[in-house]
Design a protein around this nucleic acid. Structure first.
Length: 822
RNA sequence: GCCGAUGUGGCGAAAUUGGUAGACGCACCAGACUCAAAAUCUGGCGUGGCUCACCCCACGUGCCGGUUCGACUCCGGCCAUCGGCACCA
């Protein structure tokens, strides 16, 4: 029996307990049904769920439930991105063990997720900080190492003093640390990298395959990869026999206009290129450049500075002798670290040449050209360029490069902005990089049988200035996997983004203790059919995962090219117009919502109002409204629970108008809701349809005496199934109380009859010259001639057309008639 | 500077293919029920005008222009907001 009023707390608790025991969402790898893989970006176990999580996981859950009802074998897993700095900071500040801190948080958040009613197969749970997972992260690192895709080099890297570790380029946002927002500096260190640049072209090109991704994310990735086509031109140094300076340029067509050359302060040959009389000034300049922060150095506002080295290059095109300068507007890690300067046709060179009185030569002319002003148009005609004079600039780019190639001082070159992925971190709470340094054998990966390299427990978190892992008396000393002699372990751990680059593969075979995953299983379940998460991972996680997929494919571990077929980046959850955050004090605790309204209300509300990709404004009134709606739905079933027939039966053709209208409304509801879900998961309109349909049923029951209970049963049982992916607890409670012994969540999705999924009558719009003059209630599916006749006879139209000539009449079936008169 | 997205009532928004702009909800207003309140139910709710009690007219989807019988939707040009990239040669 259903209570008269809805009590979410009791009902949700009841089904929570039942589902804990019955595990209704266990996935069968061998099901003959077609597979569907629905995936949420897994959370970092920070302590408690926030509303962003609730939104993310509710969307994915409704997708998973909908696909399951449509007959798919759905994989909907969940796990924990559980390595990372917050756990370590908790250890430093409160003396907690990072593992205990993390696992406690996981336990709490897992309960919160279960209370949200997610249809997750918890037997596939993945926790990246546990040895049964990071063993395989390490194993994969070894595979990449063997394949030459993991390597160690000394390079100027991003350093965050506050986090006391290096960072990948992707983790530096506007010169600041992505996590703590403090300024990043450059340090020259020996670090581990993954060779993502080997895949620059494929990562860029395959964006075209990702038709299920938004353009915003694809553009961001494409910008980040930053491909430019151009040329390498090589210049002989006049004063030093045999020394050449290569430069990368996208404008070889301007090569005749070169008047000087710039090298970065960190340029490798800079000392050779400096003459004794300039040495002091150059040294001073380089020292100053080193002191500048990244933000200062990269600011476009800054006035350019530089000093001459005293040496020169010879422009092979013109024979002109050009001075070499050092200036920090040349970047050491892009292109070759040296730039050819063409002041007349490049803004930066122009500013610099003006300031230091360097000569300028015009080599391109065009429509907007003005004497004495920098002319940067890429279209134009060459002048002062020898045999290339009169050539169009775009043609000249190829011709001049070709000329340089034939004469041995240049070649075509494609340059990418993407850098290799720096993965070492000088922190404790991560997967140890499984490498040993042997004085005899060099850098050696740990034997696979010795994995995992366990994180040591005997560490002191209070140390400053080095990684806590270094304090372990037992970790560092080991023996060489090859020669067995004394050797030392690598003490750096891996960037957590390495762990999260393959977790979605592990779900396909989460408990395998022999392999990272079975090849058949990973190929069966992947790629992910629908991936859902925040836009903040547009570059970081999504780019790294794409790289991992391609790299593991080339290691022979799997056979697909892209991990995520469709991507939905959900908007943020706002309150009072700004992002929920502790510092602003505008957060909403899911536990409070569960307690006061129940998880179904939270699910319903977070899906309503805004489409998933847009930001969502959380309001207390909105929650209240959704709760009232749930109660309103519940009351319908509570009131008619004794009249609802499990085996309803009716003959449509003999129904009264009122009854057949409700049957039509039911079919319309199924059609629209199904379409809205399939059309980019427009859950906000799905929920509008729930309300519309519920209102129709209320209208129907207004006159108690004329209710046909077969028709009402059809409508109510349909509504119950339609709403079940969203209101998972209430729908199951009602369904079971009506005496059904199975679960509403196991029922197939509702089907509709297209002929019945429309109203019996339509409103015919009558226009004269495109302006609405009348609206007529007419039967649907009349012929064009009949509609035209009706429109012309309508009293309101006839007065408009009386004394005019009808030029033409446009009829849109079932919609409108437009009479054009003169 | 380059690239991407967005722009519709007081607010969140809706509108397969060009065809009733504002569905559905929030807020608000009025009525019913009640001693009263909450809850619930019913109705109203873009702007302006009128010879106005519910009839009618004009205007209205960021701005300007175009295509069309007809434009939130298509085309051209702007503006604003948000996001990404950027001394990248």
């Amino acid at each position: 029996m259903l209570e008269k009023e809805y009590y979410p707390q009791q009902i949700e608790k009841k089904w929570f307990d039942i589902w804990e025991k019955t595990k209704p969402y266990k996935v069968d790898d061998n099901s003959p049904k077609p597979k569907y893989y629905a995936l949420s970006m897994f959370p970092y176990p920070s302590g408690k769920l926030h509303m962003g999580h609730v939104r993310n996981y509710t969307i994915t859950d409704v997708v998973a439930r909908f696909k399951k009802a449509q007959g798919f074998n759905v994989l909907h897993p969940m796990g924990w991105d559980s390595f990372g700095l917050p756990a370590e900071n908790a250890a430093i500040q409160h003396g907690a063990d990072p593992e205990t801190w993390t696992l406690d948080n996981i336990a709490y958040m897992k309960k919160q997720l279960k209370m949200l009613g997610l249809s997750v197969d918890w037997d596939r749970e993945v926790t990246t900080c546990l040895p049964d997972y990071y063993k395989w992260t390490q194993w994969l690192f070894v595979q990449l190492f063997k394949k030459g895709l993991a390597y160690k080099k000394t390079a100027p890297v991003n350093w965050c003093e506050k986090c006391h570790t290096v960072l990948a380029n992707e983790q530096v946002i506007d010169g600041k640390c992505w996590r703590c927002d403090s300024e990043v500096t450059k340090k020259n260190l020996s670090q581990w990298f993954l060779k993502i640049t080997d895949y620059s072209e494929e990562l860029l090109k395959d964006l075209d395959l990702l038709t299920g991704w938004g353009d915003n994310v694809k553009t961001m990735q494409s910008n980040w990869i930053g491909k430019s086509n151009g040329a390498i031109l090589k210049f002989k140094v006049k004063e030093i026999e045999g020394l050449e300076i290569p430069v990368f340029t996208t404008r070889p067509d301007t090569a005749y206009g070169i008047t000087y050359l710039v090298v970065a302060p960190e340029y490798k040959d800079i000392e050779k290129l400096t003459t004794p009389e300039n040495k002091e000034k150059v040294e001073e300049y380089r020292e100053n450049a080193k002191k500048l922060s990244e933000i200062e150095r990269l600011s476009t506002e800054r006035i350019k500075t530089g000093v001459p080295l005293g040496t020169h290059i010879i422009n092979p095109f013109t024979g002109r002798v050009c001075p070499i300068w050092v200036a920090d507007y040349a970047l050491v890690d892009y292109g070759t670290g040296a730039v050819m300067a063409v002041p007349y046709h490049d803004d930066r060179d122009f500013d610099f040449a003006r300031k230091y009185n360097l000569p300028m030569v015009q080599v391109i002319t065009g429509e907007n050209f003005k004497e004495g002003e920098c002319f940067t148009d890429k279209q134009g005609t060459l002048v002062n360029s020898g045999k290339f004079d009169g050539m169009q600039a775009d043609k000249a780019r190829d011709a001049i490069t070709k000329f340089a190639e034939e004469n041995g001082f240049g070649s075509f070159k494609t340059q990418y902005r993407l850098r290799d992925w720096l993965i070492s971190r000088q922190r404790y709470w991560g997967a140890p990089i499984p490498v040993v340094y042997c004085p005899k054998c060099g850098t050696v990966p740990v034997n696979e049988k010795d994995l995992p390299v366990m994180l040591p427990k005997d560490v002191d978190f209070s140390v400053q200035g080095k990684s806590p892992i270094e304090t372990s008396p037992t970790f560092k000393e080991t023996t060489c996997p090859i020669c067995g002699e004394k050797a030392t372990r690598e003490t750096d751990t891996m960037d957590t983004f390495v762990c999260s680059s393959w977790y979605y593969m592990r779900y396909s075979d989460a408990k395998n203790s022999e392999k990272c995953f079975d090849k058949d299983l990973v190929n069966k379940w992947l790629p992910v059919d629908q991936y859902i998460g925040g836009i903040e991972h547009a570059i970081l996680h999504l780019l790294y995962s794409r790289f991992f997929t391609k790299a593991l494919r080339d290691c022979g571990l799997l056979s697909f090219d892209e991990p995520f077929k469709n991507l939905l980046t959900q908007g943020m959850v706002l309150k009072d117009g700004s992002k929920m955050s502790k510092s602003k004090g505008n957060t909403v605790d899911p536990d409070d919502i569960y307690r006061n309204y129940g998880a179904d209300t939270a699910r319903l509300f977070i899906l309503s109002d805004s489409p998933p990709a847009r930001d969502f404004d959380w309001t207390d009134a909105g929650v209240e409204g959704c709760y009232k709606f749930i109660c309103r739905v519940y009351r319908l079933y509570s009131k008619y629970q004794n009249q609802i027939k499990k085996d309803y039966e009716f003959d449509f053709s003999s129904l009264s108008k009122k009854d057949s209208d409700l049957v039509r409304q039911t079919h319309i509801a199924i059609k629209k809701i199904t379409n809205d879900i399939e059309n980019e998961f427009q859950f906000n309109t799905v929920i509008s349809r729930y309300r519309e349909f519920t209102n129709s049923i209320y209208d129907y029951t207004k006159d108690e005496n004329s209710i046909n209970y077969d028709v009402l049963s059809f409508a109510l049982l349909t509504l119950l199934k339609l709403i079940s992916p969203v209101c998972v607890f209430m729908s199951e409670e009602i369904y079971s109380s009506l005496g059904f012994s199975d679960s509403i969540h196991d029922l197939p999705w509702c089907s509709y009859d297209n002929d019945l999924a429309k109203t019996a009558n339509i409103t015919l719009i009558v226009q004269v010259n495109g302006k609405i003059k009348d609206k007529l209630e007419v039967e649907s599916d009349l012929s064009n001639e009949e509609l035209e006749e009706l429109a012309k006879k309508a009293p309101k139209t006839s007065e408009f057309i009386m004394d005019k000539t009808i030029v033409k009449t446009i009829v849109v079936p079932n919609k409108l008639v437009n009479i054009v008169v003169k």
